[in-house]
């Protein structure tokens, strides 16, 4: 399966070409895409609006104030935005298998994962989610009392990237199952988006079993809660092991390695869905 004929530079050039194509596709229907982006933005703002309305009324929940909660939430949106920008193909992988589009990639002389990743970019989702994340971040980064020195900036970037890899791995787990011809979109949406809903609020709000689930099973706690606790040091952190604050990138890398092995395994037993629609 490996094809080492291409240099890194050539691959990079090819990805740029792919993203140019994608951008052209997106801009083909400017009016429609603009409204799609706006709709994604508005849809994602619903949870923010509800949080805002609750917190204008009660000021703080368990010692968390509005700007601190928004700061926590910004991690979810920013990392999801980067994930979609880089790895839309992994989100849509089930569909590629289902429609037979994957077979097209398999006969090309390039790494499969490379093609899956670079073939698609969902700009509407990227900008829609990204805008929410940027708004939340810009309106809070100054007021939550963070000293933006070199060390903190490096931590922030690593934590964000770790969050991206964690979410990528979660999506890849479900794409693995589609090799064995199981349609898993529903199950995945159920697990992924419900856990994400949990992770919008500090995990200390939830009963112990949910906290454990968000740390060990679907580790969204490392995407939003622990990174923001690193900066905010709220008293409710004392329940958790202090080392968790630094684990986000590690969790991401471990998860991705395991999932990647599983993915290769799945690819070996892949047989096409039958007829290609292309």
């Amino acid at each position: 399966m490996e094809h080492k004929k291409f240099s890194k530079l050539e691959l990079l050039k090819l990805s740029l070409k792919y993203s140019k194509l994608n951008l052209k596709c997106t801009l083909e229907y400017k009016f429609d895409r603009f409204f799609t982006t706006l709709a994604v933005f508005v849809r994602e703002m619903v949870s923010i609006a509800v949080m805002y309305l609750i917190l204008t009324r009660v000021i703080s929940i368990k010692g968390w104030q509005m700007n601190e909660m928004f700061f926590l939430y910004s991690f979810l949106f920013l990392s999801y935005c980067i994930f979609i920008f880089l790895f839309t193909g992994i989100r849509d992988f089930d569909n590629m298998v289902y429609t037979g589009e994957l077979d097209r990639y398999l006969i090309r002389p390039l790494g499969l994962l490379y093609q899956v990743i670079s073939a698609r970019v969902d700009y509407c989702a990227t900008i829609g989610h990204g805008a929410v994340g940027v708004i939340l971040f810009l309106s809070t980064y100054n007021s939550v009392g963070i000293d933006w020195n070199f060390r903190n900036i490096v931590y922030y970037i690593l934590a964000l990237l770790g969050g991206v890899i964690i979410q990528t791995s979660l999506f890849m787990v479900s794409s693995c199952f589609s090799f064995w011809a199981v349609r898993t979109t529903n199950l995945r949406n159920l697990i992924f988006f419900n856990s994400r809903r949990f992770a919008g609020y500090p995990i200390s709000f939830y009963p112990g079993i949910v906290q454990k689930m968000l740390i060990f099973a679907v580790p969204f706690a490392f995407v939003s809660y622990f990174p923001s606790e690193y900066f905010l040091h709220k008293p409710d952190l004392s329940v958790f092991w202090h080392g968790c604050l630094y684990l986000t990138p590690v969790v991401g890398i471990i998860m991705f390695t395991l999932v990647y092995i599983f993915w290769r395994l799945g690819l070996k037993s892949y047989s096409s869905s039958g007829n290609s629609m292309y």
Partner: peptide, 10 residues
């Protein structure tokens, strides 16, 4: 469940 947990915290 999520929403009730949040309201309990409030």
């Amino acid at each position: 469940f999520v929403n009730i947990a949040i309201w309990k915290a409030i």
